[in-house]
Design a protein around this nucleic acid. Structure first.
Lengths: 206, 206
DNA sequence: GTCTATACAGCGATAGAC
DNA sequence: GTCTATCGCTGTATAGAC
């Protein structure tokens, strides 16, 4: 641990140019899509020229892949944080849904949802990361659902994998449908209904 | 009804140039997005020049809005056909989900899902149609869910509107998540789990 | 209704000076 | 690491002949 490098203290000070570029590009990709922004857009926002941008990220494909990779790592870290914070399945799923709500609150669409739509037009390197990203989320959800089922705190109707995929798609879709209206409340309502389906159903004995 | 015009016999013969243009543009918009295709792409596919394209649809915004309007009318017609074909809520919802599956089987994404992602970058005329399209689907679903609840063939957990929105988002999202893998089976599994949540839950008395 | 030709802006990307 | 300048290409759109 003696070899602490500059790169390691990333949360300190104001971010350097490469990180600022990534921040702006990420925002633009979440709001306008990969095909909906240009180097000129990023350059203007940062206050440098397109040529300088190319110095840091030689191609748009490289910039896009870097943004996506960083986003995926952040998301995985958020999942680990949820695992560390709460142990039972229902609160874990609540926090998972809250991750999505927070993105929408920032007037952004989930990066993965945006790029999934654009999938066919994206550089292959980005396509690969997207698929891996979805697979990761699905695995995490399936594990949480399985644990909830085992503990009796969740009553999913379907296999772990099926229900995980349904939840993943359900939340992404709820976000997508709320996106044109920028309506966080409608997303939250859908998320609540979605998660409620995993609870023990009220009896219908009468 | 005596004033039958040429336009009315649209299913006869092979489609004219304007309809062929709309067909190609619709396909490109569903697979690559509005920002992911150009007049050149359409022109090459049809076998005419870009200039000829502009003769039929003066701007890309006009072409996009026409495609979207036609798609929305087709979808509404499909919903009416479902209403006419079956009366009970569960089979209606099954057929509704099948509409989505059929689109994915053609290696297309739901046009609305694609355009919802691109929403912020679209011409305002298209934005308006998209919102109306979603509102329509939501209303239809809410009505079907309400009827199913009243008849006792559906046991939705949430208000008609909430469950309708959840279903709409859930199916769109299931499609979006299946899109990168072009995996219809995974969509079908999610749709099945989604619709199963509206059925009476198994008792948990023991 | 289709064509050729072209205007004009924007795109991603590069060269080379500072 | 940033700049000016520019390249080659593609984008939407238009003019005018046939």
């Amino acid at each position: 641990m003696s070899v602490v490098r500059k790169k390691a203290r990333k949360t300190k000070r104001s971010p350097g140019t490469p990180d600022r570029i990534l921040d702006v590009a990420e925002y633009l990709m979440q709001t306008r899509g990969y095909n909906g922004f240009s180097y000129a857009d990023v350059a203007v926002e940062i206050g440098i020229t397109k040529a300088s941008l190319h110095h840091h990220f030689s191609t748009k494909a490289a910039l896009g892949a870097t943004v996506l990779g960083r986003y995926a790592r952040g998301f995985r870290a958020a999942l680990s944080a949820i695992d560390a914070a709460v142990a039972d399945a229902p609160p874990r799923l609540d926090r998972y849904a809250k991750l999505y709500a927070d993105v929408l609150k920032q007037d952004r669409l989930c990066l993965n949802a945006m790029l999934a739509a654009e999938y066919l037009t994206l550089p292959v390197a980005m396509q690969r990361i997207i698929r891996a990203f979805f697979a990761d989320g699905e695995r995490w959800l399936a594990r949480v659902i399985g644990e909830g089922r085992a503990r009796g705190t969740l009553y999913p109707r379907g296999t772990d994998g099926e229900v995980a995929l349904m939840l993943l798609g359900g939340l992404e879709g709820a976000m997508l449908v709320a996106w044109p209206q920028q309506d966080v409340a409608r997303f939250a309502a859908s998320a609540r209904v979605l998660l409620a389906t995993l609870q023990r159903a009220p009896d219908h004995r009468g």
